[in-house]
């Protein structure tokens, strides 16, 4: 039995989720007495792929083609499915990122496999994997089991922790695969990345600002706190709709669903659609001037008060703490 773990790279750098997927595959494989085969797809990626061995991959494969340097849904899906077939992998793991959510369903169709998307927990029960996945924007969680011979799981980023790689690096096997032009019927022609900005879906700490901040100019206090914590800036829908912040930062039912270790909600009331996207965070802090704001009902720690005073004070205090260490 083999588990194929698709390890995502962008710009020839493995993503954090690549390690998470390999590590999660290792954990499951140990219980199923299976082998973990990691796969990296890209232009010239063999040099970066060996590190996956340290997270538990028994073997590391690289599929390379100059045209794979940028993502293509059709070509990447083909690469993953072809390798799964070649290796006779019964289980395929991907991460539930923009890339994994895009090509995962295609891989499932190619392998005639059932797919469990955006899993937040995996449990081995005999020879089966039971996956937990949130539905209704996190207002409920289902346990699902896949019955097809091949099974595909995509794992929510940031939930399965990779830790640090403690094993030895693997040698990387390059697997030749032929691609036709038709395989690149979709091609990425340009990528615009906000420089150095961490996405809420990937961040371990998120500081979110809401309408109570009164205007976009006051988001500097949110950015500063996120900055000292090494976290990302999030936004409620009210501030996105008002045009204060980009939609990519929106947390909630029609934004992103996040599960960071620490979520700080500032001047956010805690509407049901917002809670849906963040209530699975490990720790929640709320700063709101209204002691009856619903956000306090899900918060582990709260301060009732004016965000404009409290937030800069938190930033100063965190800086002090970090200075000490």
């Amino acid at each position: 039995m083999k588990i194929l773990a698709f390890a995502e790279q962008r710009n020839n750098k493995l993503k954090k989720t690549a390690f998470e997927v390999v590590k999660a595959a290792r954990t499951v494989a140990d219980q199923l007495k299976a082998e973990v085969v990691a796969l990296v797809v890209g232009d010239s990626v063999h040099a970066i792929a060996g590190e996956l061995g340290t997270y538990g991959a028994n073997r590391v494969l690289a599929v390379e083609d100059p045209r794979l340097g940028k993502y293509s849904t059709t070509a990447y899906a083909k690469a993953i499915a072809e390798i799964a077939k070649k290796e006779q992998a019964g289980i395929v793991f991907l991460s539930a990122t923009a890339m994994g959510k895009d090509c995962g369903p295609r891989v499932a169709v190619k392998l005639d496999a059932g797919i469990a998307v955006d899993c937040t927990a995996l449990r081995v029960d005999g020879a089966d994997i039971i996956a937990s996945r949130p539905v209704y924007a996190g207002k409920a969680v289902t346990d699902v089991k896949i019955h097809s011979p091949v099974k595909v799981f995509s794992l929510r980023p940031n939930v399965f922790t990779a830790g640090t790689g403690s094993r030895s690096t693997a040698s990387v096997e390059k697997v030749p695969l032929q691609f036709s032009d038709e395989d690149f019927s979709t091609r990425v022609i340009d990528v615009t990345q906000s420089k150095g900005k961490l996405d809420v879906a990937e961040a371990d700490i998120i500081v979110t600002g809401g309408r109570g901040l009164k205007g976009p100019e006051n988001f500097n206090i949110i950015e500063e706190l996120a900055g000292v914590l090494g976290g990302a800036v999030g936004a409620s829908r009210a501030v996105v709709d008002a045009g204060w912040r980009p939609h990519g930062e929106q947390v909630g039912q029609t934004g992103k669903t996040v599960s960071p270790s620490l979520y700080i909600a500032v001047a956010v009331s805690g509407a049901i659609q917002h809670l849906a996207g963040m209530s699975s965070s490990k720790y929640i802090v709320a700063v709101n001037k209204d002691k009856d704001a619903p956000i306090f009902q899900v918060a582990d720690y709260g301060i009732v008060g004016d965000a404009m005073e409290i937030v800069p004070a938190i930033t100063r205090e965190v800086k002090k703490l970090m200075g000490k260490e």
């Binding site: 469990a116 996190g138 289902t142 346990d143 699902v144 209530s279 929640i284 009902q297 720690y301 709260g302």
Partner: peptide, 18 residues
């Protein structure tokens, strides 16, 4: 191909401390 075995509400967070 995918069977839903169960659906639950996520364990409710109890309100923390102010």
């Amino acid at each position: 191909k995918v069977e839903v075995l169960s659906m639950k509400k996520p364990s409710a967070k109890s309100a923390g401390k102010i």
